Simulated scan of single mutants.
Amino acid sequence: MEGATQQLLQHSNFKHLLSLCDERGVFEHCEFDQPRREHGYCVDDVARAAIVLEREQSADPGITQAIDVLAGFMELAQQPDGRIRNRCDVDGAWQGEASTDDHWGRALWCWGSMVRLDPRSERVREAYDQFAKSVALRSTHMRSMVFAGLGAVEFLQAFPANTHARALLDDALRSIPANLVSAQAWPEERLTYANAAIAELLIAGGDFFGQREPVRRGLSMLTWLLALQTRDGHLSLIPATGWVVGDALPAFDQQPIEVAALADACASAYSVTGDGSWLDAIRLGAEWFDGANDLSVRMYDPSTGAGFDGLTSTGPNLNCGAESTLAYLSVMQQAHRERALK
């Protein structure tokens, strides 16, 4: 991808992301800003990268070439029965069993985004076929279903009558259990990771079906989650180890993926309600990366667009892996949209 890399360097915020890419995919981990090639690639990050690049809606040939490389990785990950393998080493050997875990859901989210956003009919057809191959499967894990449901929402923007995507979205909404207690507007006893995606699915999925109750519930959950993670006017995230009622906050390590999930959910909330307060919440996400956080430290490298891997009790974890970099870029995309809307 050397040619693609050179073309994308003009987009300075993609510089680090492209340094993680080769002709096969996106390297998962870094030591500081250097890819750890020995750790290989995973569908989770390749799918996230494809979504971020598709959201750019750029005609830059470097971006389209990068998307094509990522799409090729996703095609190789998919098995004939629709299950997905997650990990691949630097030599192209796939590791582990295919499944319907989180990476299956993220794969569907990726293909749904390609179907909705890619301007090239050939790429849309290929993504459509890959989505169709996996759409009939289901997962026993709620977050896997949530990610898949968000993919169905994307797909249905282009093909709203597709019965298989509608069935997946319906099942994804049903996979979210009732809230546990009235004092905690949340369906889990313990908050873990990408929490706001659960609320986002209720908001976006309920809106697609014209169902008021899921939308109301999702907005209530997102309001509660945002209040829980806001302190002194800035985001103060729950730690990577999770959180239950009674745990002290602030706590560490804080993960950029939580900011990205919040920003995406708030963007969906604004799209559905038109309430400008959700745009203010997106701004809090961008400001978290720029130092409006519990330690008042910047969480990205402005010269390369690299996101730091976490906010620890002593400062940023300066490793710049794919997940954190993509979280930063995703939040910036939502923040740019927020500024345009205001």
Rank of each mutant, 00 (worst) to 15 (best):
S236H: 08
V135S: 14
S220F: 05
Q334W: 04
N179M: 02
S113G: 10
G112A: 09
S58Y: 03
L222A: 10
A322K: 07
E258C: 01
E56L: 15
G3R: 12
D207L: 05
V124F: 06
G242A: 03
L180N: 14
F14C: 04
R48E: 04
F27T: 06
L341H: 09
L311M: 12
E97W: 01
Q65P: 02
E2K: 08
G72E: 13
Q255D: 01
D301I: 04
L180E: 13
G218F: 02
G72C: 08
R298T: 12
L201H: 14
E258L: 01
L191N: 01
P187L: 02
W224T: 08
A263N: 09
Q333P: 03
A4Y: 08
L20P: 01
E54N: 10
G218M: 04
I63L: 13
Q333C: 03
L284W: 09
N195K: 01
F155T: 14
G92I: 14
F208N: 13
I67T: 00
F208A: 12
Q184W: 01
H39A: 13
G315H: 11
A265S: 15
T304S: 13
A107N: 06
S330V: 01
G233A: 08
N319F: 10
I51N: 02
L191W: 00
A161D: 15
T241V: 03
D253P: 15
D101W: 01
L226Q: 10
D118C: 11
H141D: 00
V115D: 06
L117A: 07
I63V: 15
P177M: 10
M299Q: 14
I176V: 14
L237F: 02
P61R: 01
G307L: 11
P316D: 11
A165Q: 10
T140D: 05
H39Y: 15
A204T: 15
T230N: 07
G149P: 10
G92W: 11
G310F: 06
R37Q: 14
A167M: 03
V259F: 02
G274E: 12
A335P: 03
Q78C: 06
L156T: 13
V46K: 00
Q7P: 03
G307V: 14
C30W: 02
C42N: 15
P61Y: 03
S330K: 07
N162Y: 08
A196K: 03
T230K: 00
V43N: 08
P250H: 13
R48T: 07
R217W: 05
W243V: 00
T64L: 13
A152H: 04
